[in-house]
Structures are given as structure tokens and as C-alpha cells.
Simulated scan of single mutants.
Amino acid sequence: MLNLPEKVEIMEVCPRDGWQNHKTMISTEMKIKYIKRMIDCGAKKMDVTSFVNPKAVPQMGDAFDVVAGVSDYADEKGCVLSGLALNQKGVDNARKAGLTDVSFVLSVSEEHNLRNSKRTIKESLETFLALAESAEGLAITLALPCVFGSPFGDEIPMKRVTDIIDKAFAAGVTEIGLADTAGISTPGHTREVLQHLAGFVDFDHVSIHLHDTRGMGLANAYVALEEGITKFDASMGAMGGCPFVPGAKGNIGTEDLINMFEQMGVATGYDLQMVIETAVEMGREIDAELVSSMANLCAQK
């Protein structure tokens, strides 16, 4: 019989990863409304926006206003807000906005990193190590896209991944995020990668970020749970996708992940029914076609 954890932590990433690709601009007021609703659903950690060039990702152009509109409510409810950054300027802006948690993105795919941040892996790593050593007062997570495979066909050597992780921890980083950015991993491959990394990093300090491009997101999450991962990213309504990965679909749906875990007896701290109802209402208000199973099941009733 499987030795499963009693509970897991699910970080809600819809406000950042879920909305960044949405074709219709979402008003700041609408974002604030649904971020607060997500917190009411039980989110204790949330990827709330990204501090990137608004010309590249227009949907995130109101980052400062969004953070200002939800910070007090999040503090009151005990939800930690995080923002994404690709460079020193992004980290500085996250700090100016009042965030204490930042995710710095460094892809382990050379091609993806060039498209995502217009830098080589070496250049991004040098930038990251410099800011990590000077980031007093900030909790920085190093997010590693494409750990489970590159959509551009370039090889992802595990030694590259472990070298980056080693250097990050040496610089004082305590959290690592592993991402299947293109949603191309299989359960077998996910297990293989995680079993390899288990010898290099304590999974208490690792989260996993899975996309569902080929319909294997939940299966990969199940394998990750078996391998000792207890921190997961998920997006309400299964919204999301990387602007720099052609054809990438959304993240695993928060409501689908909660349903799977709760059915297995693993607590999440979320109110599943409230998450489903919020996802359905959000989809209607922002004109989003939700693809999560639980949201669609509810919408059809």
C-alpha cells in the first residue's frame, strides 16, 4: 500500500501563469476580485503576477496595481503572494511592489531560455547568483522550466540541472521549482527525472509545475506524489500556457488536482466546491474556455 502524505501544498498560479496568455485583456479590478476569491477558496500561496516587460506580456502590465489591491487581504487571510521575475529589474520591481517572495525563472533549455529571457543559460545563471547573494529580505524560489523536456528538441542533461541546483543552494536559495513547461513528460519519464534528482536535493524544498498539453498532467502529479513531492502548482480552470512555447496548454486545473488528492485521502486545505464554482464564474466573466474536468462537469449541470 502506498505511503502517501497526510497533506499537500497547492500554490495557485492562475493570476500569473493562467492569465498571461489570455487573449482578452482582463481588467485590474477583475483580477483583484478573483484573486481574493481564490484566497477565500483556501489558497495559502499564490503566484499573483509577473514583473516582466509589458510589451512581451501585456496582460501583466498592471503588476504593481494588482499587488497593491490584494496585499492587505492576503496578509489578513494568511496567503503568501509571490511574483515572477526574469532579471534584476524584475526582482527590484517585485520588492518595490511590497512582495517578500519572488520566483526567478531560469530555463534549463538553452533555446527556451533565449526565447523567454533573451539570455543564455550562463548569462541568466550569473544574474541570478548575483541577485540571490544580495537579496536580503526576499525569499527567492529558483524556477527551472523544461526540466522534464524541451519543446524545441534540445537535450536537457541532468548534470546541467543538478549543477544549477547546487549553485543556487550555495547562494542561499532554499526553494526549487521543477517545471514541465511544455507538458510533454510522461509518467515514466517524470519518475525517472525525480528519482535522479532525489539524490541531489531534499524534496521538502522542491515544488513541481505541470502543464497538461498531452493530457498527462494529473498522471505526472500522481507520480510526483509517489516520489515524495508535496508542493504542487496548479491553475484554476486549468488556464495557462507559456507565450514562448508554441502549442503549450494550461497547467493542471486546481480543482482537478484537489479532487484527485482529496479522493485519495490527502488534504489540500481548499474548499473544492468553492473552487469549482469560482472557476466557472471566472470563466464566464473573462470569456475563458475552461478545460478542467471538474469545472466543465459543474458548468454542464
Rank of each mutant, 00 (worst) to 15 (best):
P5D: 04
C14T: 14
D17Y: 05
I26A: 02
M30E: 01
K36I: 05
I39E: 06
M46R: 06
T49W: 05
V57H: 06
Q59I: 04
F64R: 13
Y73V: 13
A74M: 09
D75F: 11
G78C: 12
V91Y: 00
K96N: 13
K96Y: 08
V105A: 11
V105Q: 02
R119G: 06
E123H: 02
L125N: 07
L131P: 00
A132M: 03
E136A: 13
L138V: 04
I140R: 05
G149Y: 02
P151V: 07
E155V: 12
K159Q: 14
A168W: 11
L178F: 03
L178M: 08
G183Q: 07
V193K: 07
F203Q: 09
L210I: 15
G217N: 02
A221E: 03
T230K: 13
T230H: 12
A234D: 12
P243S: 11
F244Q: 03
A248G: 08
G253M: 04
T254H: 02
I258H: 04
M264E: 11
G265T: 09
T268V: 03
L272P: 09
M274H: 15
V275S: 10
A279D: 04
A279L: 01
E289Y: 13
L290V: 00
V291N: 14
S292P: 10
N296S: 07
N296F: 00
